[in-house]
Amino acid sequence: MHYGSLYTETDYEVKSHILNGTLSYQLMPSVALNVQGTFSKSSASFDPVEMPQTPLRTLAEEKIHLANYDYSTIHSYSDLDYQFLNLRLGLTYAISKIVGWDLVIDYYDLTDNQGYVYGVESGTFYVIRTGFSIYRSGK
């Protein structure tokens, strides 16, 4: 049997705090330091779905075998809540006018406070990079 539809409104909300910062400092004439950071805290969720208790709902729950129109928990299956941190530390040393050395450390960290169909996605990823640079110009 068919008892029509049951509906209600629900609110969906996205919230994000995003912070960026970069600091450059010339420690010595030949040494420079660079620090960059990004932090974001984001969430996306919808409010509990509270279906109205209408006469048709009561009838449907009686007539339809084991129908359950309590949807008040479904929002919790797909809520998202992430914290993301990215830090970069860079150090540059000018050995001479044409040769330099640098070191860069990139650090990424994701904290997943909710988990979704992929499971909890919290993880860390970092890259340490170092090398020499040569600059030339001329005929």
Partner: peptide, 10 residues
């Protein structure tokens, strides 16, 4: 800057 912020999302 506001667009830069959006690029920091997951």
């Amino acid at each position: 800057q506001e667009v830069v912020g959006q690029f920091q999302l997951a």
